[in-house]
Each structure stands twice: as C-alpha cells, then as structure tokens.
Nucleic acid binder design. Structure first.
Lengths: 206, 206
DNA sequence: CGCTAAGCCGAGCGACCGCTCGCATTCAAC
DNA sequence: GTTGAATGCGAGCGGTCGCTCGGCTTAGCG
C-alpha cells in the first residue's frame, strides 16, 4: 500500500522519529570525528544513546546510515544554492556567475568539517551514487543557464563547457575549503569566476 | 649501524628482493580489484604466493604496503613527466603548457585502473601525505616556470596562479580519465590548456 | 484498566581482521 | 660438508566488526 519499505520499520510515533534523527545526528558526529573505518555501528548507536538493535530497526546496514547522512548534506546544499540559481537568469552573466559561486562556496564552508571528513576519510564509492546524482542535477541546471545565453552554439561545445565548469567549481571550492590555501576568499572567487567565464564557448556577450 | 630500519628486515639476497616485489605487485592487483577494505593482509599475501608472516617480515603493517604501492606510482609519474618539464623552459608558453599537460594526462591514463581504485575505494587519508609531497614538488616546478615568464609579478599572484593551475590540472585530468566524459582527448587538452594559460597573472606575453 | 503492537534493549554470534611466533627451509661463507 | 644467518611458513591469538533475536518497556486506544 505504500512505497518500498524505506529500510526496516517505518517510524510512526514521534518517539521513533526522534530516534532516527538522533541516529543520523550521531552518525554525523562519529563520522566527522572518527572517520568511516572507526565509525562502527555500535559506536554510532552508543553516540546516539541507543542500542545496536534499535539502530537496525531503522537502517538496513551501516552504509544505509551513511547514505542518510549524505542525503541530508546533499539536500541542504541544494536548498542553500537554490535562491542564487533562481536569481541568476535575470542577471548579467558575470554577476550571475560570481553570485552562484559565492553561494556554492558558502554552502561548502558551512559544512566544512563533515565534508572534510568525507573527502579524506570515507572511500568515495560509499557515496558516489548520491554524489553523481547531485552532479547530474547541477550539470542540468548549468547547461540550461549556459545554453540560454548562447543560442546557436553546438551542443557538444555546451556540454564540454558544462563539464569543465561543474567539475572545476566542485573541486576547487572543496579543495579551497579543506586545504585552506593562503588565498583571500575574494581573490579566490574572482579567479574562479574568471576561469568559469573564460571557458564558455564564444558568442556575443550577454 | 645503518639508518632507521626501513620496515623490518632489509632484503639482502636476491630471493627476498623478489619476494618484496611480488608482495607489492600483489598489493597493486588486490587493491585494484578489491579496494582498500577488502584488501586484507592475508589476501595480499595469498595473492603474492607468500605467507602472512613473510609479508610482515618486510612491511610494518598494512598501510606500509599501501605506502609502497603509492610510492611506486608517484615515482613512475614523476619520471614520466620529467622530460616534458625539462623541455618546457625552452618552448613558447602555450606549446610548453600543452606539452606538459599531454604528458600528465598520458601518465594518468597509463595508470588508470590503479588510480581509479585509489580515488574511489581508498580513503584519501591513507595516501594524503605522499600525495601532498608530490603536490609540493609539482607546485615548486610550476611556480618556477611561471615566475621565469613573468618577471615583476607579485609573489602572491604567482602563488595564487600556481595553486589554481596545479589543482585544476590534477583534478580535471584524473576526473577525465576515471569518469570518461564524452569529450575527445584533443578537445579536452585544448580546453585545459586554455584554462591554465588564461589564469596566469597578466604580463607581456612570452 | 487491559491489551496490542510499536519501540527498544543488549548479550552475544559468527566471521574476519591485522598481526605474531616458533619452527622449518635455504643460502652464502668458510 | 657444516654452520649460522637470512628467509619463509602457517596455525592461530586477541580483538573488533556488522548484525540478530528473544524478551522487556512504553504508547495509544477502547
């Protein structure tokens, strides 16, 4: 009568919903502090103030918990940059680009500890599917924004520019935050903006 | 009487040198096929046709084996791009850049399976120190090449350009190889070259 | 209140891990 | 040959892991 069973039980009472939230919170904490290897299910359960059995009442296995953590991060990120994406279409290209990049960087900065923990303490295959889904969504939006400004440019060129733009932004922002190079935030955003603008296939400017 | 003991025994006979090589070979194979989690020391030993005890005769622990694998990759990579780096100083900037990027991409392509295995199946913290060392070396060289062409440019600007260039090249080449986007190799190199050239702090062209 | 089911506990299972150690084997030097 | 160091073996230790299951507790409802 309902969709696929999410994992095990469906939390129906308020009590159990709190429990699930406590587990995910604890998972974030343990993953951030100890990394993937050390984040045993028993440890997460203990950090949540819950028994291992309870944990497995709501999650199929360890990776299901990690997936829930990622989902929360991805959703938050998406919501965080949505406003700037909506505003982008109405602005000149350089201003729009700079604004979106600022939003992206901000969202990564606000999740720095967790993102850092994932980037260098969790094998990427554990979260690759969800990350690829996010990449796909971002690429779609980027492609649309790009195509709207460049009528008549070949599809392949737009796709190439989209790939370069999204990957460059993804990696450089994450790296800027976790590696903290001695570059002022404004200078970083300026350079990144000019990189992204520079790789667009040529057409008459907006 | 000698320096720090490298791990355990120093292989002195040919026999033991073969053994060490067999272990590292096996580690490459197992890591590539099974990933870090599944690459247990017993499994690596079995793949090398050697007993666990023998393995621990030459390596301090599991991560010491992984480190040996990385070292081999890093060394090979360094040797692979060295010729193009030596030739770079004597060429016009655009040609030099393009040539070096081609060499970098080639080296990554020839190690694609192992690099892919590391990128998404090994937690980065396991190889971060050695990777950072490589980054440092590459950054130094890049900085020198850049500075030679741009006398009088502020140090901070050169450092910023170096950081952007090295990180962009690192990530985009690796991603291009492991994610295999629908972009022809030549087009990829052209775009990457123009990105790198574009971000250099302005001065009179070479 | 009494009853049902949802929620929760926690000891502990079976598996596998990284790693050791006592002993057998092989080789180089004499 | 003989000998001692170098090399290799592999059963198995101590430990942790992911996960289960039988029974207790609590919430919701008539």
């Amino acid at each position: 009568m309902c969709g696929v069973p999410p994992s095990r039980r469906q939390p129906s009472q308020q009590r159990s919903r709190d429990t699930v939230a406590a587990i995910v919170d604890a998972a974030v904490r343990v993953l951030t502090e100890q990394g993937y290897d050390q984040a045993s299910t028993n440890r997460i359960a203990a950090a949540a103030g819950v028994s291992p059995g309870t944990l497995y009442g709501y999650f199929a296995d360890k990776d299901d918990i990690v997936a829930a953590v990622i989902e929360r991060v991805v959703d938050g990120f998406g919501e965080g940059i949505a406003p700037s994406l909506r505003a982008a279409a109405a602005l000149p290209e350089d201003e729009a680009t700079r604004m979106v990049l600022d939003a992206v960087l901000t969202e990564i900065e606000t999740r720095a500890p967790l993102i850092e923990a994932f980037v260098d303490r969790v094998p990427a295959e554990r979260y690759a599917p969800q990350l690829d889904q996010l990449r796909l969504r971002v690429s779609d939006i980027t492609f649309q924004l790009l195509a709207a400004r460049r009528p008549g440019v070949a599809l392949a060129d737009l796709e190439r520019a989209t790939w370069f733009a999204t990957r460059t932004i993804e990696y450089l922002t994450v790296r800027y935050v976790v590696a903290a190079p001695p570059i002022p935030r404004e200078a970083f955003l300026d350079e990144l903006t000019s990189m992204v603008l520079g790789l667009s296939p040529a057409t008459s400017a907006s």
